[in-house]
Simulated assay, not measured.
Amino acid sequence: MPDHTFPLIEVEGSSYEMGYQHGAQAAGLVQRYLRWIDRLTGMSRDTLCRNAMGFWPLMERLSPAFSEEVRGLADGAGISLEEAVLCQARAEAAQRTVGACTAFALTRSATADGNTLAGQNQDLEPEYADVALLLKVRPGDGRPRALMFTFAGQLGYSGLNEHGVAHFANALYGCTWQMGLPHYPIKRLVLEQRTVEDCVELLSGHRTCSAANLVLCDGQGHIDTVEIRPEGIARYPDAHPDACLHTNHYLTPAFAGHETGFLPDSCPRLDRIRELVQARWGTITVDTIKEILADHENDPGGICRHGAVGMHSISGYIAEPEKRLFHVRRGHGCLGTWQAYEV
């Protein structure tokens, strides 16, 4: 049988050592990711690298450890530092927002056992699946272990850490690009936190160059939704305190005025996942979530996305933070293969 899971890269040690190991193990995939960025953006590698390096001083100030890991990545993969930085700022270097995604966090009265379930469908152009991997990090300096779904050479994306902190993302639109931190380095630092409140404090202390939403959870049953824009963040209290559901339009009063309706399927998707969650309230398990993430209402722009605006559900995730389990699916919700990993 063919292997329908993503490659797993495991690294440990100092920041530089982890970056070097990542680069050495995934060198071919890193090169493919860089070629995909070229093709996706239609821009030259030189221009993309020059643009990306404009964010490098901000990354260095954000986290010297992250910056050392980038340097190790460059050496391990046999690429330039500029190309390694581009892997951390692909969207920002091209000023191109990408993604749809349906994200959720459910806890206490919503789930069958009262434990938290959080995750998303990852909706992107299908080529991203060809350069994706799982990255398990074991820092040697006391920072927590973590497991991420990401792309070869990109050091921060959605995942779960040993404290049960997990985060999942939705693209948001209607934002003018500004100089600020790229989202991927911040996402990596989120996975170095112990609680949701720690994550919110981190997000509130740094200005980003574009907009996005994060759905957060931790190992103590806390969940939250945070919309992020260059001017700041806004937390969204959902209709029930035991649920956080989000797609690709602004929900917070602070930012609702920026909504442009860029993705017309966003509102129907949110309505649909709310409907499905409500119908199974109090009985929701991992298998229930797998069914929800395979739903085709409003096809091709449903929760399980099949090509609307050129994007597909290339993967999906379900975190069980109390158990430190991370379920990852390769492929569409309706056809893909799930695999569970311990953090």
Rank of each mutant, 00 (worst) to 15 (best):
50 R>H: 13
175 C>P: 08
127 E>C: 03
60 E>F: 07
295 D>R: 06
117 L>R: 04
64 P>C: 07
129 A>N: 01
173 Y>W: 14
145 R>C: 14
255 F>G: 03
111 T>H: 02
162 E>C: 04
104 F>W: 12
277 V>K: 07
148 M>K: 05
326 F>N: 06
240 H>S: 13
191 L>D: 11
323 K>H: 12
177 W>A: 11
318 I>Y: 01
4 H>Y: 15
69 E>M: 11
289 I>T: 03
216 L>Q: 06
143 R>D: 08
242 D>A: 09
282 G>C: 07
24 A>H: 11
129 A>T: 03
296 H>D: 05
244 C>R: 15
81 L>N: 04
70 V>Y: 00
119 G>D: 01
8 L>K: 03
131 V>S: 00
51 N>S: 14
48 L>M: 03
117 L>V: 07
55 F>Q: 09
196 V>S: 06
41 T>C: 01
189 L>P: 01
327 H>W: 14
51 N>P: 11
342 E>S: 12
192 E>H: 09
6 F>D: 11
294 A>T: 00
133 L>W: 05
164 G>F: 01
265 D>L: 01
287 D>R: 12
25 Q>Y: 11
54 G>W: 06
278 Q>K: 14
303 I>D: 00
69 E>H: 06
243 A>D: 02
263 L>S: 11
204 S>D: 15
149 F>K: 12
96 R>T: 13
91 A>E: 15
303 I>Y: 02
112 A>G: 04
310 G>F: 00
72 G>L: 01
236 Y>W: 15
119 G>A: 04
101 C>M: 10
160 L>P: 00
197 E>M: 13
178 Q>I: 08
180 G>Y: 06
172 L>P: 07
244 C>G: 08
66 F>H: 15
292 I>D: 01
338 W>N: 07
277 V>G: 07
166 A>R: 00
273 I>Y: 11
42 G>Y: 08
181 L>T: 05
150 T>V: 09
233 I>L: 09
254 A>Y: 05
154 Q>M: 15
154 Q>A: 13
157 Y>I: 06
237 P>A: 14
187 K>S: 14
17 E>C: 05
109 S>K: 12
49 C>D: 02
56 W>Y: 14
328 V>N: 03
70 V>A: 10
67 S>D: 02
6 F>P: 08
151 F>D: 04
197 E>V: 13
15 S>N: 12
274 R>W: 10
116 T>M: 02
327 H>K: 00
38 D>L: 11
39 R>V: 09
2 P>Q: 12
141 D>G: 07
229 R>N: 11
53 M>L: 15
68 E>H: 04
11 V>T: 15
329 R>A: 04
276 L>V: 07
336 G>T: 02
64 P>F: 03
258 H>M: 08
183 H>S: 15
111 T>R: 04
143 R>W: 07
79 I>Y: 01
95 Q>H: 13
205 G>D: 02
324 R>L: 10
88 Q>W: 02
324 R>D: 03
280 R>W: 12
208 T>S: 10
290 K>A: 09
2 P>D: 13
137 V>Q: 15
143 R>N: 13
38 D>K: 10
93 A>T: 12
264 P>R: 13
265 D>Y: 12
57 P>E: 08
